[in-house]
């Protein structure tokens, strides 16, 4: 009879060291780089307000009250020119990560950027900044296999240990489940009135008084959101339901984006986490669709199918 410790060991080995398709890491890497770049570009016009010493946030007070050790490159870069240089450097690192060129170095630079601007602009942060900061740490410590890169082709590593994907997946679970538990304290959620208030709030894209007339629908929607947030991580983690989970998750965040002002970045940041739930068969399907759209059915497709078949036979 196997001991409990052996079972735990097997469980952890399966969670962290099982082999994962390297293309999933490539998807996460590229999605993260693109979204981080978009966030940087959207912050660029406001860098003077939030990241310089002539802006709206006092650095010395922030240093004194910051919850963690105040580590930021903006301790040295305080004027508009040097802040611009830092941002250009971070943007370059994001392009490098997107292209897969020196990816570990690029991931480190991007992590430093996220930690730095979060410390300096602490009173102007949004939910997606926190999501991106968590992902930047996980991308930094994850395998970054040389798959789908623009750099000189090396021997491809078709598989990598899955710990990075596992942790990103659990990160999504924490976001949803902690949010739901936190709402158990909120009268607006428990009474089912939240969606009514949401659609009248500063976040709403079209706040109109007649929304309040649909009381029953809005209550049902409020409770449905809680159910979806509890169910999504479970769906995404099961083979049978993960595609439905991907679709429902996308529709859920797209719905938030459509009904809200300013939440495009939140949709995109969450989609980076969703990329970690892709499976080999999803990527095969997406690749086939992309090729069909581009009209390129080349010999490479046959090679991919052979690799997939051999993987399937090994797995079985």
């Amino acid at each position: 009879m196997r001991t409990l410790s052996a079972k735990i060991h097997d469980l952890l080995t399966g969670l962290f060291l099982a082999r994962a398709d390297a293309r999933i890491y490539a998807c996460v890497r590229m999605a993260f780089a693109l979204v981080a770049l978009m966030n940087l570009l959207m912050l660029w016009p406001h860098r003077g307000s939030f990241l310089t010493d002539v802006g709206m946030i006092d650095q010395e007070l922030t240093r004194q009250t910051y919850r963690w050790p105040y580590l930021t490159v903006f301790d040295w870069c305080r004027d508009l020119t040097s802040v611009s240089v830092v941002m250009i450097g971070a943007g370059t690192a994001m392009l490098m990560l997107l292209a897969g060129w020196l990816p570990r170095l690029a991931a480190l630079a991007i992590y430093v950027w996220h930690v730095s601007y979060a410390a300096r602009g602490v009173t102007a942060l949004c939910g997606w900044d926190t999501v991106l900061r968590c992902v930047s740490f996980l991308v930094l410590v994850s395998p970054l296999p040389a798959v789908w890169t623009l750099t000189k082709k090396r021997a491809e590593a078709p598989e990598a240990p899955c710990y990075g994907l596992t942790l990103i997946r659990f990160q999504l679970l924490v976001i949803y489940w902690q949010t739901v538990l936190d709402r158990l304290d909120s009268q607006f959620w428990l009474s089912g009135e939240f969606m009514g208030y949401y659609l009248l709030s500063h976040n709403a894209r079209w706040p109109v008084a007649w929304v309040a007339d649909f009381d029953l629908t809005l209550r049902a929607l409020t409770y449905l959101i809680l159910i979806v947030e509890v169910a999504l991580p479970v769906m995404l983690m099961t083979r049978r339901w993960h595609r439905a989970g991907l679709l429902i998750g996308f529709l859920f965040h797209f719905g938030i984006f459509v009904t809200s002002n300013n939440l495009l970045m939140f949709l995109l940041a969450m989609m980076v986490l969703y990329a970690a739930f892709l499976r080999s068969e999803d990527i095969d399907w997406l690749t086939r669709q992309a090729r069909r759209l581009l009209g390129t059915s080349d010999a490479r497709q046959g090679a991919d199918q052979k690799v997939r078949k051999s993987r399937t036979s090994r797995a079985s």
Binding site: L12, F16, P161, Y163, L167, F170, A315
Partner: peptide, 29 residues
């Protein structure tokens, strides 16, 4: 199929993964 964690790198991954996962598990609250 999972690899056998003989190598030092695998042990580091297991350690870090377990610690971070435990942190995430607590963070659900």
């Amino acid at each position: 199929m999972a690899a056998t964690p003989h190598r030092f790198r695998d042990r580091c991954i297991l350690f870090f993964g377990t610690v971070h996962l435990a942190f995430l598990a607590v963070s659900i609250l």
